[in-house]
Amino acid sequence: MKHLNFNSVLHPRPQPTGIDVQCQLQHFALISYAIDPEKLHHIIPQRFKLDTIFVQGQEKVLLSVVPFIDIDFTSACYRFPKFSMGQTNYRIYVIDQETQERCVWFIGTTLDSWTVFVPRFAWLLPWYKAEIHFDCQQDQQGYYSSYKMTTYSEWAAAEVHLTQSAQDEWHYDGFPDLESYLVYLTHPLAGFYHRRDGKLGTYRVWHDRLRPKPATLLHAKFELLNRLNLVSFHDQLKPYSVLIEAINEFTIYLPPQVLEQNSASYPIK
């Protein structure tokens, strides 16, 4: 992989309009796994190619589980009530072959809020109702002495327990340097997915440079990854890398767009 740099991807925030949303993401974690690309070809449409790296001489693609709490979730343009809700995204790193942009493919999302009916039924996003609990403690320096998240969901039940200290080391095997790893993992601004009707959908976000720090996984159990034969329960205990950022800010540009009326495959059930 060639060197990636933030100077080439950072840009001022596009002016929000209409129903665009802004929010802060608290307890933002990235638990990433390096998996065999062959396990993903049936999921990703031909428009995209997997953004692979070589880990210990083997071609791999990264898949991240991304839990966080949306806080102060509200309109970016108007006075509007603010919401807070737990959320977990399951995403794969890909390249849009039409634009050559690095982006993410969303397998799906769990959301702990009655508002899930808007993305699920109005926009047909692969979002699923869940009950999500966070139990996090930080020390005086802001490191997570304990980070626990539990999701109760028919679609993607999950458990994760992380810890963090100043002694945690960076792991970015397969990348030329730390900056390339961080650009790849933290700065895709376009997301794609199969809508619940099988059509190809997309939406965009904006955020400034994220500044997560490495952490250590003590326990993980992601039912979805095991069910799809992507990462077994045993292998989930051996992540490629773990990152946590205490809080950051996102702008989400809505509504999502429909790109193709027919897609080669369908949403993960």
Rank of each mutant, 00 (worst) to 15 (best):
E154P: 09
H171E: 00
L178G: 00
D72I: 03
P16H: 10
A158H: 07
P267D: 01
W114H: 04
I44V: 10
K213W: 03
P176H: 04
Y172M: 03
F83S: 12
I35Q: 10
F117S: 01
P45I: 04
G198S: 01
P67N: 06
P214R: 05
Y128Q: 14
H27V: 01
I44Y: 09
P212M: 03
M85P: 06
E179P: 07
N7D: 13
T109M: 15
I31T: 02
Q261C: 03
L237K: 15
L62W: 02
Q97W: 06
V61P: 07
L185K: 00
T151P: 00
L224K: 11
G86S: 06
H194M: 05
P12M: 11
T115G: 00
L185I: 10
L185S: 03
G18W: 10
P81G: 12
V242C: 05
V118W: 08
Y147I: 08
G198M: 08
G198A: 10
V242S: 00
W127H: 15
K129A: 15
L228D: 07
S32R: 12
F250N: 11
D20G: 02
E38I: 01
S263C: 13
E169S: 14
H194R: 13
I268W: 13
L200I: 05
Y240E: 02
L230T: 04
D139V: 07
S232C: 09
T17C: 08
N226W: 14
A264I: 10
V21N: 00
D168M: 08
D139P: 04
K221Q: 15
M149W: 10
D177S: 03
P267N: 02
Q58S: 14
W170A: 00
F48K: 02
Y203Q: 02
E131A: 06
P176D: 04
A29P: 01
T202Y: 09
Q46P: 01
F68Q: 01
S263R: 05
F28Q: 01
I53C: 05
I247H: 05
D173E: 14
F233M: 12
N229A: 14
H11G: 10
K238W: 03
K2Q: 07
Y253A: 10
I107G: 04
P212Y: 05
R13A: 14
I19M: 13
F134G: 04
W206N: 00
F28V: 02
N226R: 11
H194W: 10
H234Y: 13
Y181S: 09
S145V: 11
D36Q: 04
A264L: 05
Y181C: 07
M149Q: 14
N89G: 09
H41A: 04
R47P: 12
